[in-house]
């Protein structure tokens, strides 16, 4: 592909039942582009975890997926409360989620570690009170 393809979504932070919609759509789009099943799964799981996090912690945000020749890039940008201690947040099992979120099946402290596990590259920029930007790449 000579030009990259970009999919952009606004993630609604108000309604938990819709959380994950953008990731399902991305999975469909990537299938149509004929990417390998493994790449599609890794991209969609990483994005899904990020999308759920955006809804749980940040009141929504913007998700962008760029399909390039040698990798797929996921950019998650929110104006939420920010992450105080990124190293701590990256530890499996650490979570600040409420009991309500846990009762919905999430908030086990596996989101960020899982995003790193499924991707080849991941950076987190976060400022308390300003927001968080996560960039992830999965090589094709």
């Amino acid at each position: 592909m000579s030009e990259e393809l970009v999919f952009r979504f606004t993630v609604d932070g108000e309604d938990f039942t819709s959380a994950g919609q953008a990731s399902v759509q991305v999975k469909k789009n990537l299938r149509q582009l004929g990417l390998s099943a493994e790449v599609i799964k890794r991209v969609s799981v990483a994005m899904y975890e990020g999308e759920i996090n955006m809804v749980i912690h940040a009141g929504g945000g913007i998700a962008e997926v760029r399909v390039c020749e040698s990798y797929v890039e996921i950019i998650l940008d929110d104006k939420g409360p920010g992450i105080k201690d990124i190293d701590l947040a990256m530890q499996e099992g650490y979570s600040t989620a409420t009991d309500t979120i846990r009762s919905l099946g999430f908030g086990a402290g596996m989101g960020l570690p899982n995003m790193r596990k499924y991707t080849d590259y991941m950076t987190i920029e976060s400022e308390v009170g300003v927001g968080t930007k996560i960039v992830m790449r999965v090589n094709c």
């Binding site: 959380a19 994950g20 919609q21 399902v24 999975k27 969609s44 899904y48 099946g105 402290g109 596996m110």
Partner: peptide, 28 residues
Amino acid sequence: SDVLAYAGDQAVLLTGLVNPQVIRTAVM
């Protein structure tokens, strides 16, 4: 969260949780 972290190539999900994210998790 654990399905996404540990399910590997498991084809069937048994669960007692009922919400749309169960379906989306299985899709992912």
